[in-house]
Design a protein around this nucleic acid. Structure first.
Lengths: 149, 149
DNA sequence: CTTGATTGGTACGATATCGCACTATATAGG
DNA sequence: CCTATATAGTGCGATATCGTACCAATCAAG
């Protein structure tokens, strides 16, 4: 009985997480220029946080998506002038992804554009509760990541 | 400064939620028959939880997806024999979605197939922490749902 | 009733995701 | 060195998502 209870709580957690993901993605994409969606933004953000010059395969692994998906996402970013792909001098098979100023500006501008909405949320939602769930979500993500076969 | 701190925590929360959504979806889809993905399962589950006979537009609203997407998802379920679409006697424009035994079995069987993995998570992860975040996630989902313009 | 506006559903096209197959390059074993 | 294997990237096809346009049925105003 206790197991059943716990399992339904767990399924509920995943269900709520799915909905929140959908809503937060919509919030983000409403602020992106036409033709760009969440994965494009995530890639720009990753390049700013971790430094650019990474290879496409590195980023595919970081996001846990197939390399074909990353190729496609990068093609979209390159077409819009947000990143530049150059040959990797260390490995003739691969490339390196470099941010352009336009890419940096888009990422930072989008964050700023979302700030009002986020500040509103922080002001209207119990901040302590948000702070409390953050580490649990991180640990849950780490657990599931490790459990992935 | 405090605002900035809170905002980065909030962005982190959304980022972790995005990753957990991806991992939990992969967990689910690994147990679904070929050609079915998470939205198919969600529809079956919804029909079991809320009762079948709902119209496609009802379900599109429930999942907050465009009606064209729901048409497509239902077409896949119907093709596999998991649901039946019948004219709505109350409204000549619309249809009703009915579960088949095969649809019910798939949903229940998939839940059972995931149970071991979920039980493992529950046994290895601090259950109290999972129980603690559940209501916060629900309230956050409710808040964001209401804030959606 | 009649007629204009609204609503449920679908066809279609654009883009996204991802598995498979292929090429080019790199690496490891001998 | 040579050769077998592994790896990075891409082309292609199948399916998914979703906006636009459209049709048929309903509803609402008179």
């Amino acid at each position: 009985m206790k197991d059943n209870l716990d399992l339904s709580v767990l399924f509920d957690v995943f269900k709520e997480i799915g909905i929140i993901e959908q809503l937060s993605r919509a919030l983000l994409e409403a602020r992106l220029p036409d033709g760009l969606i969440a994965p494009h933004f995530s890639v720009l953000s990753h390049l700013i946080n971790r430094g650019d010059g990474a290879t496409p395969i590195d980023m595919a692994r970081a996001f846990q998506v197939p390399k074909t998906s990353m190729t496609h996402t990068l093609k979209g970013l390159e077409k819009g002038g947000y990143v530049t792909l150059r040959p990797n001098p260390q490995d003739g098979r691969s490339k390196q992804v470099w941010l352009t100023d336009k890419g940096r500006d888009l990422r930072n501008g989008t964050l700023q554009a979302m700030a009002p909405e986020m500040l509103k949320l922080v002001s209207e939602f119990d901040t302590d509760r948000l702070l409390a769930i953050a580490p649990v979500l991180t640990d849950l993500r780490i657990y599931m990541d490790a459990a992935r076969d």
